[in-house]
Design a protein around this nucleic acid. Structure first.
Lengths: 208, 208, 208, 208
DNA sequence: CATGAATGAGGGTTCATTCAT
DNA sequence: TATGAATGAACCCTCATTCAT
């Protein structure tokens, strides 16, 4: 996540300054994309929020699309890192699932509102951008899918289409962590976990 | 095709035309919004698809936003009608749920790709538009919420936060009927129902 | 800044209005390109000079480059037409030359300052634009070249490299009709003809 | 030259550096202006070619325009020097002309592509810049004009408007040494001289 | 003094909306 | 009434210029 573009030891002032500015832009853009969507986010807005000049953004990112891509790729790769770190194949699927969730939710503020934008970019973006997004997303989905297959083979999970179920899991996660906040107070970590458990693990029905 | 000179057919043609024209616009806009998203849909496009002049649209709808709102309200009210018709409080919640689903899925092509746009409009739209959307959506959500409370009180469903669960149900429905299609072949009605059952009713876990 | 296009054109109808607007744009752009060059001409400027909205230009021309190309191609094709009409192979080269000059100079105001821009477009334009220009220019040059060869074969002209001489003739024409005007009062038709005769036909030296 | 604090190596380095730096900038700018034109040459480009920081340019030249002016003035004054050195009023006009040409063509690479830019600067530049250019150019033109008058008075040249003829001579020189190269292999010195002789001295026509 | 990161005015282009026909 | 040519605000992006280091 952190940029090491410069020699880390050179001039502390310069490095920090540069890094900070890029960080400012990334954070401002993240927030604005998440808040207003891709199209509705203007570079002027981002600049204003980041407290930098409009041109400054273009010293770090060649286009608006590239700025967006970088944010998204960063978030997703961060998520993947977490997953890889937390999953222990000697444990049960649902144990892994909730431990991963715990870690992911630590970073909620970073990416909570962001993921929903994948849809918009697909609508509006160029083919290149779309391709990039698709690849990056499929990494996550493939990974979950793989875990689901594993769980099924160990009889920890019912028979199901791992493709669809993985897709729904991701959607549910996005819905609870980000989309919900549009209309309501954010949910607590425990609320999120509890609802995922409800839907994924136990089901809602009471079977007489 | 129809030839007669202006005079005789004018009145009738116009009347019919007026009715048809509005429908044509609504349908064209629906398709375009669903296909390309709100921002990426241009009024020119809509006019071309609807086979009317660009200016004509503005005789029916004051702004692009109003056009969108009207489409959305139409879809949602249609859904509400279906729900009211299909729900029978003497039956069990899940029975009702699946009967409603059956009916809703009949109209899938009408609104499948549309609902996801609620998010985009909220992002891009004016406060007024957002308020309208929120009201109209809350009608659906409130209704489901109410049904859930009812189900809980009758011990057909576990204790849960009806608010959140209703929200998740809607999200899941949208995910399966519309968002999935972005990347994959559309699911069959039965696939959709089966996965909703899996998540909502039974849960995924196998409890030894 | 007040629009009075409508009043006078009302009777004449739509077509004339439309045509006029395009003409206005073309003329404004011609003048501005000729006066300020390609890069230094802004679409806003053109719109202001043409007394139309900026967006109007884009109903006729997709890009600034296309606008420029169209003007240039128009001028050059007009010149070619004149040449073809005026040249009579039964007459002598210099007779033809001066008759062509006479006709070309009629349209001086249309293209006088324009041709010099070919250079700038070559510098700034896209490869497509450059290719178009090169083709269109070579039409003129090839034609003159061909005529020169003919004149040489009939012993009306000294042996020389027709390629280079054609090039110099065009440059001289541009210099006298357009570039000169940058610093001085425009030359009269007769002055132009006389100087071309001086350079091309007789030479400057007095040979004792 | 100036010697103060710092260690000796640095001092000398700086001094030489300063001198070199300005030259480097001038040469880089010359090449870039000639190659890409005025507008299309960016200060970044110049800095990169000159191997100096962008800001450094502004220690020598207040604006891009001033940088350009200085280059142009340099070239023109160089040309004037050559003319003054080569012209011998005891000899004939055309003898002088060709001796000057010989010398000028030695420096072709320095200014060949540059002169055409006078036009562009006049298009793009501020009134001050244009005024400066006009003055500097008129120096050359006045000088040639003066020589022409002299030649006419000595009956070495036909009666003509010395103003216009001087102008055309310069244009022809630019055309042959610089503009031609855009489309073709550069001409040799002898080719250039031969064509100037053809046009200026003898004329193209064969008079029966 | 040299530097290049930062800046923002200004460019080309799009598109929702208007209005004369 | 239906139309689409006309419009201009607002978008993304470039680049000459400045200034803190």
């Amino acid at each position: 996540m952190v940029m090491h573009t410069m020699d880390s030891a050179k001039q502390e002032g310069k490095n920090i300054g540069t890094v900070d500015r890029k960080k400012q832009v990334l954070e401002a853009a993240s927030r604005s994309f998440a808040l207003f969507g891709y199209k509705a986010t203007t570079m002027e807005q981002v600049a204003k929020i980041a407290n930098v000049g409009k041109g400054t953004i273009y010293t770090f990112f060649n286009t608006k699309e590239q700025l967006f891509d970088e944010i998204l790729i960063g978030v997703i790769s961060e998520m993947k890192t977490i997953i890889l770190r937390e999953v222990d194949h000697d444990r049960k699927f649902f144990e892994n699932l909730f431990r991963v969730l715990d870690s992911l939710l630590e970073f909620r503020s970073e990416h909570e509102l962001l993921m929903k934008l994948s849809q918009e970019v697909r609508d509006v973006g160029t083919p290149q951008s779309q391709e990039a997004m698709a690849q990056v997303e499929s990494v996550i989905l493939n990974y979950i899918e793989h875990e689901i297959r594993h769980a099924i083979s160990r009889h920890e999970m019912r028979e199901c289409d791992p493709n669809i179920v993985a897709f729904l899991m991701v959607k549910m996660y996005i819905a609870l962590t980000s989309e919900w906040n549009k209309y309501h107070e954010p949910l607590t970590k425990d609320q999120i976990k509890e609802h995922i458990r409800l839907f994924l693990e136990d089901g809602l029905a009471i079977h007489a």
